[in-house]
């Protein structure tokens, strides 16, 4: 039996309802195509058990959390893609226009830089010369929330992303 078939229908419905509720609470929408969306949620549940974190079902995870951090759902690219294309890469999250049937969901280009480029970006981030503010500013890479404090919060108060999804912004 494949991993995708090993997830029970009850488990999928439970997760689906939770994703839907959390999305609405945060001002987001999940894809109204329930059958397609449940397929994506099965993929997220498989990735959770396979890697220990729910990485994007439509992207190849390397199984190393540090390398996959930007594609743990909700990914770092969701907000930009929903604005630009009406849906995130896997199409779990959609815009209001898609929700209301005014815009179709299409296959969208990949906003995540290729592996070689990601490595270069990570190297560059370390080289930045930080300004001399009284406190550093931290940015949630999932929703853009900013806060000035010694370190990032344990959990983003806006989107609930964990501490490791924050970057030093200023």
């Amino acid at each position: 039996m494949s991993e995708m078939d090993s997830i029970s229908p009850q488990e999928i419905v439970r997760a689906y309802e939770k994703y839907k509720k959390d999305a609405v609470a945060g001002g987001y929408n999940i894809n109204p195509d329930a059958e397609f969306t449940k397929g994506l949620i099965s993929g997220l549940l498989v990735n959770q058990s396979r890697y220990g974190y729910p990485s994007c079902p439509c992207r190849l995870a390397m199984g190393n959390k540090q390398d996959d951090l930007d594609i743990i759902c909700p990914c770092d690219y969701r907000d930009g893609d929903v604005v630009k294309y009406g849906a995130c890469y896997c199409a779990l999250y959609v815009s209001q226009a898609v929700l209301e049937g005014r815009q179709p969901v299409q296959s969208i280009p990949e906003s995540r830089p290729p592996r070689a480029e990601r490595k270069k970006q990570a190297a560059r981030a370390v080289d930045l010369d930080w300004s001399k503010l009284p406190l550093p500013v931290w940015r949630c890479k999932v929703c853009g929330y900013l806060c000035a404090r010694d370190g990032p919060p344990e959990v983003c108060p806006i989107c609930k992303a964990k501490k490791d999804r924050f970057e030093r912004f200023i």
């Binding site: 494949s2 991993e3 995708m4 397609f36 397929g39 994506l40 099965s42 993929g43 997220l44 498989v46 990735n47 079902p57 439509c58 992207r59 190849l60 896997c90 199409a91 296959s107």
Partner: peptide, 9 residues
């Protein structure tokens, strides 16, 4: 393809 992906399916 990816076994978990909706577009691949």
């Amino acid at each position: 393809a990816l076994s978990t992906c909706g577009h691949c399916r």
